[in-house]
Amino acid sequence: MTLVQLSGAGEPGGGSSGASWSDRSRRRGDILGRVRSTSRQGASRLDIAAVSLLVIVTVVAVLVPWLAPHDPKLPIGTAFQAPGHGGLLGTDEVGRDVLTRLLFGLRASWLAAIVVIAAGLIIGGIVGVVAGATGGIVDSVLMRITDGFLSLPAAILAIALVAALGPSFAHVLEAIVVVWWPYYARLFRTEIRALAARPHLEAARLAGASRWRLATRHLLPGAMSTVLVAASLDVGAVILTLASLSYLGLGAPAPAPELGAMSSQGLTYLLAYWWIPILPALTVFALCVVANLAGDGVRDLFESR
């Protein structure tokens, strides 16, 4: 019970982002405390579960080549076997193992979403920090460009972009990054502008810290937590966008195990062999639910600090 008491005592004063060891252990106590006092804080046990799911799904995604029972591109037996008859989840129109293909599709979607978010964070981070830390004309020019991107319809732009570059999985990722980074640039910039007015920044400036040092050591770390929370809430949306573009035939060509493409190629069999199009779609749904719950969990954990 000491942990609960600790966390109760720690909460109001906490909130600095410098993470020393003692700080970190207190935060840990906070997490456990929140788990035990679910009635007060709402669904915090769920938050922890959701965030750990995030880790589990990532580990599974990485390990898929070793976990999957078969080769995703080769038939293992008769086509159109219902789930439970041939393989755990049946076979598709060519006789490939559906479970294997779903696992590989999950891997592609999940890792791709993380890559897209990371790339968006890096580009948006550079633009946002430069704009926020420099100010003046650089700030207005960069933010006008960002606003321009934000006011055009992202989905339409992404479709046109992939169509122009030629359908491929890499191009889908690039297109999503192109429409995604402006959100982070905006967010970084807002956070940095708010931070720049704080006393500790003024102190650093007076101590003669260079602009680079100010930006990388003082501004960026302070903006990180808000942006990371926003980014974790976006994983689900990126997975959905990816799946939609892949569904429209903009992703990798036919035998590649992509969830969206599998679902759309299986559409012909919807009424006769429902599992071929619906299971990939359900996998996208499940991934997205996990990502959204985990995002909410990350936000709650950050906010509770």
Binding site: G260, I278, F285
Partner: peptide
Amino acid sequence: GAAAPTFL
């Protein structure tokens, strides 16, 4: 609803 792909 927030997680369901339109095609599902």
